[in-house]
Every structure is written in C-alpha cells, then in structure tokens.
Design a protein around this nucleic acid. Structure first.
Lengths: 145, 145
DNA sequence: TTTGCTGCAAATAGTTTGCAGAGAC
DNA sequence: GTCTCTGCAAACTATTTGCAGCAAA
C-alpha cells in the first residue's frame, strides 16, 4: 500500500474514532492533505476542489484543516509573511527547506536534531514539547534560471 | 560601553547612513529594540511609548519596525498564531526557546547549527541564506506553578 | 431521527496605506 | 526651505463566526 494511501486511511480512522462525519468535502480535503508533498496552503486546497465542488466555501476548508490540526493529523507551517502551509503526510515536527523564489518546500533528513532538543532542555530548564526548524534559500532550479 | 548602548548607536548610525531622519519617536523605538531582551511585539513597544508620546500611532511603530527590519537591524519572529516578536539586539538568525504559557523567549547557545546548514545545502542543492530554529515548551517557572 | 456539517455573509483582528500637517535637517 | 515622518482614519486581507438549511450515520 502506498504511503499516501496509508496516511489517508489513518486520518479517516482518526476522524471516525472521534465521531466526526465523513462528508464528501471532508474526504476530498483529507485526500489532498494526505499526499501533500507540495505542502499546500488553504487557497491551494480550495482551488483544487472547486472543480469537484463548485459551491464549496473557503470556510469549509479552514474548518476542516483546523479540525485535522487539532487531531494532530496535520502540521501547520505558519510563515512571517502570513502565508500558511500544511503537511498532512508527515504531521510531526521535521525540518523544512524553503525556496524564496518558487516557494517550494522540501523535507531534508537530518540526524542531529534529537540531540539539540536534549541540549536545549538541559541548558534552559525548559520542558521541550516541540520544535520548528526551517532553512530558507534558493533552490537549484531557481538558481539556474 | 554596555552591549545595549552599542547596539543603539550602531542602529542610529545605520539610519543616518541611509538618510533617515532621527525623530524622537523613531529614537524611542530604536532604544526599546536595541535592548529587546524580552523580544517585544508591536503592542508591547507601543504600550511602552504611550507614556512619553501620548499621541503616538500604532502605524508609526509598524512603519519603524519595518524600516529597521529592511535595514537588517531587527529580526522578526513571526508565529503561527499571528503574533510577531522582534529582536533588535541580535538581528541575525539564532535559535529561540519559547514558553507556551508565559510567552517568554530565551536565546540558548547551540554550537552545531553551522554544520546543519552545510548538511542541508549538500543534501538539497539549495543555496541556504538563512534559517530559523525554535523550540517550544514550558519554562521552569511555569512548570513549578 | 439526530447531530454535526456546509455555504453564505458578516464580523473580526492585525496590518498597511493615503493624506495633510508637523518637524528634522 | 525641502522632504521625510507622523497621526489619523480608512482600507485591506486572511481568518473566524452565526445562522439556517442539508446530509451523514
């Protein structure tokens, strides 16, 4: 079973376990987020669904993404410029690399992060619950343009 | 000379070098940001200045903070919940530790970050220009309450 | 049948902008 | 004297909310 399909089913199960109804709109939003390699934003999700649901409202997208976030099934990446991006494929904290130009977001794999969290906790006395690590720059494609 | 005083003068110089006028409001905003150990937000700065400048407008704070940010003299920390915090004391990227409860922000000192940036660049082909690393949790004081 | 969900429209909140007068240089 | 800056108020934009009807279970 593909990774995306697995995520889709796992989110659906979480919804059912928490007594949320499975409306067509909700399922469509979950489907997009489960495979959200591109880290879509609200408008993006909305745009993808307008074809299938011409009367769909932005508010519905907001409400569902927020619901999934509150269930821990979607990771929200808020940015300083006000743009928000969502990741329903890997809903746990992980580093991102963001291209300033094309806004592409990539997930690099880094090993050393757990150590850092531990180091920070020791040093500050905080109980660390989560973290966020983003790198910003220009991707290879944009650089070669 | 105290670190804060040094920062203050350095920002003033940058303003003058770029032909910006030194109004009392602007100087007061710079003074707060130069010693911004507490990582204030716009409202915070505004609140601190209302005593000295009863007619001061929020827009003036926004405009000046934005100006200083564009000059590279202030680091903006935007958060998902829409709150923005500013650091004019250390305007370059550095990690932060944020308390969910009291909203306190601390600067830990971590050594391994440069390596990470390099690793990410190698792995993704990006030219990394900046980064952001935040840890979220509960500080010792809040935890003991 | 019940309860939660959707779409619409209005409300909200944080931030930005246009403009006329004030003030730095 | 010139030109930028400020304060005010209005504009803007992304997001949230109230409500009535609709649909999942």
């Amino acid at each position: 079973m593909a990774d995306v399909e697995k995520r889709y089913r796992s989110i659906i199960k979480k919804l059912q376990d928490n007594k949320h109804k499975l409306t067509p709109q909700r399922l469509a939003i979950v489907r997009i987020l489960a495979g959200s390699a591109g880290h879509p934003n609200i408008e993006h999700i909305y745009g993808q669904l307008r074809g299938d649901f011409p009367t769909m409202s932005l508010a519905t997208v907001y409400r569902n993404v927020m619901l999934l976030k509150s269930l821990g099934e979607v990771l929200e990446l808020g940015f300083t410029d006000g743009s928000n991006r969502y990741d329903g494929n890997k809903p746990y904290p992980h580093p991102h690399v963001i291209c300033y130009q094309c806004k592409k977001i990539i997930d690099p794999s880094l090993a050393t992060l757990k150590d850092l969290t531990h180091e920070v906790a020791e040093q500050t006395g905080f109980r660390i619950l989560t973290h966020r690590l983003d790198f910003f720059g220009i991707c290879e494609a944009c650089h070669n343009k």
